[in-house]
């Protein structure tokens, strides 16, 4: 039996890659890899879980969540929380002066405030300052829309999409909001979004997987002899 040198549990992403270019990951793998990468890039554990959720949600709906997340993490890593989080007030949320909001922190906070006066409400608009990679907001808005029976419009200079649960609208929104850094306005009205249908599983590029892996490995500790010793058998298993 030949033993390949690479191993996914040793932080080597080579086995993921089917044709040297890209790979399909299970949603569990996406959530897990992206959570660790977000943590490695400096997010708190709880926010890193939100990043994993968002990436897996996008993949489930046919959108390359890991790629969008990496683009954001690469840009935002190392920035202090105060530079990434919104100032919250009814009708208008702001980014710190001269900064763009982290879409994961913003999305999670929008969910946290969904039942509060400062949150998204039917028949009202919420102005939000500049947002990095607003495509990553979509999973959070979809959760709010589904649980509060809202149809949410995302409006930015030069464009608008309604999150109504339809696949084609979703793909359009993802395409339009990818790679952007724009101020947005969220407008909501009562209505039941369609249950979102799963999309075709996107292929994730080898570079993105490797880059996320590199961030994820920052959460790990180099092994010492003492740690290895107690974790399992230290003698032969020929018994």
């Amino acid at each position: 039996m030949t033993i390949a040198p690479h191993d996914q549990t040793r932080g080597d992403s080579t086995p993921y890659i089917e044709d040297g270019l890209s790979a399909s990951l299970s949603r569990n793998e996406v959530a897990s890899l992206c959570m660790k990468a977000a943590r490695g890039a400096g997010m708190s554990w709880g926010l890193a879980e939100e990043a994993g959720f968002a990436a897996a949600w996008l993949v489930q709906h046919g959108i390359n969540g890991p790629s969008h997340l990496y683009a954001h993490l690469d840009q935002a890593q190392g920035r202090p929380w105060g530079d990434l989080c919104p100032t919250v007030s009814p009708g208008a949320w702001e980014a710190p002066a001269g900064r763009a909001l982290c879409p994961i922190a913003l999305g999670a906070t929008l969910c946290d405030y969904a039942e509060l006066p400062e949150g998204i409400k039917a028949r009202s608009s919420l102005e939000i300052g500049k947002v990095d990679h607003p495509v990553l907001l979509i999973p959070f808005l979809a959760v709010i829309a589904a649980s509060n029976d809202l149809l949410i419009d995302i409006v930015w200079t030069g464009g608008m999409v309604t999150l109504d649960g339809r696949s084609d609208t979703l793909m359009h929104a993802a395409h339009a909001l990818a790679g952007q850094q724009v101020p947005i306005t969220l407008t909501a009205r009562s209505g039941k979004p369609q249950a979102a249908t799963p999309g075709k599983v996107p292929k994730i590029s080898a570079e993105i997987i490797a880059a996320l892996n590199t961030l994820a490995m920052r959460t790990t500790v180099p092994s010492s002899e003492s740690s290895r010793a107690g974790a399992g058998s230290t003698t032969t298993d020929n018994d």
């Binding site: 549990t9 790990t220 500790v221 290895r228």
Partner: peptide, 10 residues
């Protein structure tokens, strides 16, 4: 922690 060696909890 998670080991760099094998990504397993230790």
């Amino acid at each position: 922690y998670v080991s760099e060696e094998k990504l397993e909890p230790r």
